[in-house]
Design a protein around this nucleic acid. Structure first.
Lengths: 241, 241
DNA sequence: GAGTGGTCTAGACCACATT
DNA sequence: ATGTGGTCTAGACCACTCT
């Protein structure tokens, strides 16, 4: 996995924003200055800035420059595709994962079919994991990993990062996901696992794909509604839904 | 507002996907073909395709082509910045808006300050609107529009589209927003307005900005949890949070 | 007028798929 | 060998902001 110049520039500027070297409300160097700084063409610099712009790290203003936006990302985001392990690392949460179940299955679990009715019979691996933050249950993640492309799943991987395993050990390229967030009534078994009083939970259902459009994962995440918080950044689109 | 070639190409291909001219699971013409089709350079075509790619309309696969993804966007998205009026039009919902309140205020309403504690005293216009779909209450939108940049808000605008008014009548450029989704307990007054049994609602709090980073709007949207559904498309980022 | 970002071009070389 | 998308370049012209 070689990084392109665009990757390097975007990540470098993002790091400088995170570390406060470029402060919120101030302008970063102009495109021409960045061009000489990184020794590339202006279009390459512009591609890197466009990435930061769409993520909400900067705002480009014609005739003036690119200003660093005031971002406060201390919460639990479900936008983007980021694994729990990655979030834990980058946000410095005191988080733990408890694997409740891990088994191969001949077909999709029943309660998955309600949310993913179009899925046909398919072999795979079922994993159920409770996520705790500061020793309090926060999320119950139920994953179904398709076989193929995922043949095996060591317990140690489930305890740590499945995404790291898929990308680095299996060499697959995780690309995109569709997500659906709803509020659902849950049974007493789930109430007990999450240790919540209400019989309601926030359900995030995800369908994830590799870069060749192969589906590899279905996830049902049940969140304690009193702890659920989802932060998003959105830009006004020129292409309407 | 002149459209760039990139805009035209992106919107044209998006329309062809929506109308089924380019079908899900099939490849759209190659970049070289599109280059001759639209009479532009390849980089321009690529910028248009990149936009469709990030929106989840297509998936680019190296060595093969760009495949149309299977999108089903029949639900109520809060991702992106799209006004209720725009959604109603493009999704063909039978939706109505009932303006419950519209008044100028010297400062931010009290219940806004809990969600936006950093806002200082500021003059503005408060609007409260109930959104009905198929004659059933779905969302209560509470908006606070800053003065400046928004001096006046005719009742007729509140009944139709505030965004259309801001962009087309005032000539301002709506650019981006931060959003936060939580589940909150609501009082009986709100329960009555939304006609829900539970004392819980999904709250979407938004902070919206113009392209010069001027804030112009705060919104608190209370959703009936049993009807709330939020669909998102996400790509794996090279820049980690 | 000088500096900024916005758009577009024509061409180059590369990595990957397919035949 | 051919066709596909991925990356990068050097340069051009434009629209806007500020002094």
């Amino acid at each position: 996995m070689v990084k392109s110049k665009t990757d390097i520039i975007a990540q470098d500027i993002a790091a400088k924003i995170r570390h406060g070297q470029f402060k919120a409300g101030t302008f970063i160097p102009s495109e021409n200055q960045l061009t000489t700084l990184y020794g590339t063409s202006r279009e390459t610099v512009r591609k890197a800035l466009e990435r930061l712009n769409s993520l909400g790290l900067i705002q480009k203003i014609r005739g003036k420059g690119s200003i660093v936006l005031n971002l406060e990302r201390y919460s639990f985001p479900i936008s983007g595709i980021t694994s729990f392990a990655e979030l834990n690392r980058s946000l410095g949460m005191n988080a733990k994962t408890k694997v409740l179940e891990l088994k191969k299955m001949e077909s999709l679990p029943k309660f998955f079919k309600e949310k993913f009715p179009k899925q046909s019979k398919q072999e795979g691996i079922y994993v159920e994991r409770l996520r705790l933050i500061e020793n309090e249950p926060e999320v119950l993640d139920c994953d179904f990993l398709f076989t193929p492309p995922i043949k095996e799943l060591p317990l140690k991987v489930a305890q740590n990062s499945i995404y790291n395993y898929i990308e680095n050990d299996l060499g697959l390229e995780i690309s995109y996901a569709t997500k659906e967030v709803t509020v659902e009534r849950i049974n007493t078994d789930l109430q007990k696992k999450l240790a919540v009083g209400d019989n309601l939970a926030v359900l995030v259902a995800s369908h994830s794909f590799l870069s060749d459009t192969t589906p590899f994962q279905l996830t049902l995440s049940f969140h304690d509604p009193s702890k659920f918080k989802f932060v998003d950044f959105a830009r006004r689109q020129k292409i309407k839904p």
